[in-house]
């Protein structure tokens, strides 16, 4: 399956299913090293938090959402929706 690249908040990456079934999250390409997520920067740069906040209110657990890198996500309209919800959380970048 060919995976489409997205640019979210000026960062290039891909969408994956979240580890909580029914969720979808964006992962910057530079945070994936040899099929493994670089967890520290993923949390520090805010992606763990941005991704959970981009899910519907009743989906996700806790404060963070992590991807299942074995499961790339391909539904482009859902990806676009999640991308928009992430962007809307960062008004300083949207303004720019």
């Amino acid at each position: 399956m060919k995976i489409k690249m997205f640019t979210v908040l000026e960062v290039v990456g891909q969408f994956y299913e979240g580890d909580v079934p029914g969720t979808v999250c964006f992962v910057p390409n530079n945070l994936i090293r040899g099929n493994k997520l670089d967890e520290g920067p993923y949390v520090l740069e805010g992606w763990a938090s941005l991704n959970i906040k981009a899910q519907p209110e009743d989906m996700g657990i806790g404060s963070h959402l992590f991807p299942d890198l074995q499961k790339p996500y391909a539904n482009q309209s859902v990806c676009a929706k999640i991308a928009e919800r992430i962007a809307n959380q960062r008004p300083q970048l949207v303004k720019a």
Partner: peptide
């Protein structure tokens, strides 16, 4: 089966 929080330095 899911990671729900991490505290990172």
């Amino acid at each position: 089966i899911a990671t729900v929080y991490q505290d990172v330095t």
